[in-house]
């Protein structure tokens, strides 16, 4: 760590939290590079593993909604995913045949309308099987005052729903239902002093573009100030808005962890040719995943021991895997 002592560590990245609540955290990240801040944003949106309903076995559906309509809705219901990175396996990496309590959570839904009034089926009506990886994981997130959660469907007299939902661990890159955040606000240089954006205007930028809420955190360009072509962005305003699966600070930590594991796995694999590197950075659970190598189906979730197997021999010509493209 010789060169970055003065570049990074001396000043050190800084974080200022401006606002926080049950489901969001707003903070400014300082003294890191744009590329790193953007990596953090990307990783938070697309690569933090959480739980979501992925498989639905429908026994009865006499509601007005078609099966796939309901399945899609069920998939989008946020489920508590506390510690699921450690406690829950990916189904494709699990030793079981199809799914089991270590790699999935079963939720059952049974509702029938027997009165003349329209009956609403809520997320709270999902019954969570207690045979699961940890005592939180898979419970629907319910934040409303009545404790009912989101409406899944409405039933008329005589209509019935009976189904078994299997929730699995996944990442947002594969499907947005696995994204732990509704949005990550990301802004830098609110006065556009770096000219990274070209603001369209008719008469005057100042009149036509309202100032962002972060504008007061930075000095506007002075009258007659010259444009500095060497200036670099330095302060990034994050607004992380969770969905309830994970607490906002957990989201940040998980994001950093995912990024680190991603790096460590590659470094570790590179370290096979160079013994000293790598090893020490990897989490303890690095060992082999029990010989299910052939189940690497297209997308390997980065950092989760992905490359620790099958690393012998050359790739097929031109690097194409027989399993086709990933889920990007």
């Amino acid at each position: 760590m010789d060169f970055d002592d003065d570049m990074i560590l001396d000043q050190g990245p800084a974080v200022t939290i401006t606002e926080a609540g049950d489901n969001f955290v707003n903070f400014a990240l300082q003294k890191v590079d744009l590329s790193f801040a953007n990596s953090l944003r990307r990783v938070i949106m697309a690569e933090i593993p959480i739980m979501a309903i992925d498989l639905v076995e429908i026994e009865v559906n006499s509601s007005v909604l078609p099966d796939e309509f309901l399945c899609h809705r069920l998939g989008l219901i946020p489920l508590v995913s506390k510690n699921c990175t450690e406690d829950v396996e990916y189904t494709r990496e699990c030793d079981c045949d199809q799914y089991c309590s270590r790699c999935s959570v079963t939720l059952s839904l049974h509702a029938k309308c027997t009165s003349n009034e329209i009956m609403k089926v809520y997320a709270a009506d999902l019954l969570v099987d207690h045979d699961r990886a940890n005592p939180w994981v898979g419970t629907p997130v319910i934040t409303d005052a009545e404790g009912k959660g989101t409406v899944i469907c409405k039933l008329r007299n005589g209509q019935e729903l009976r189904m078994k939902c299997i929730a699995k661990k996944g990442i947002g890159k594969e499907h947005a239902k696995w994204a732990p955040v509704a949005a990550v606000g990301f802004e830098y240089d609110p006065h556009n002093k770096l000219k990274h954006t070209d603001l369209w205007f008719e008469k005057s930028i100042a009149e036509e573009w309202p100032a962002s809420k972060h504008a007061e955190w930075e000095e506007p360009a002075q009258e007659g100030e010259r444009f500095d072509p060497d200036a670099e962005p330095d302060k990034y305003y994050f607004e992380v808005e969770g969905v309830g699966n994970l607490a906002p600070d957990q989201i940040i930590h998980e994001g950093i962890k995912v990024l680190q594991t991603k790096l460590a796995t590659i470094l570790n694999a590179l370290g096979e040719t160079k013994e000293d590197a790598g090893e020490r950075f990897l989490p303890d659970d690095d060992v082999d995943m029990g010989g299910r190598n052939d189940f690497d189906n297209g997308y390997t979730t980065p950092g989760y021991n992905g490359p620790s197997y099958g690393n012998h021999g050359r790739a097929t010509p031109y690097g194409a895997t027989p399993y086709g493209q990933s889920g990007y």
Binding site: D4, F36, L40, H253
Partner: peptide
Amino acid sequence: FEDLIALCDVVADTFT
């Protein structure tokens, strides 16, 4: 890779 991992550590600590 090593430096980026170290940078992540610093940011995580600062955030905490």
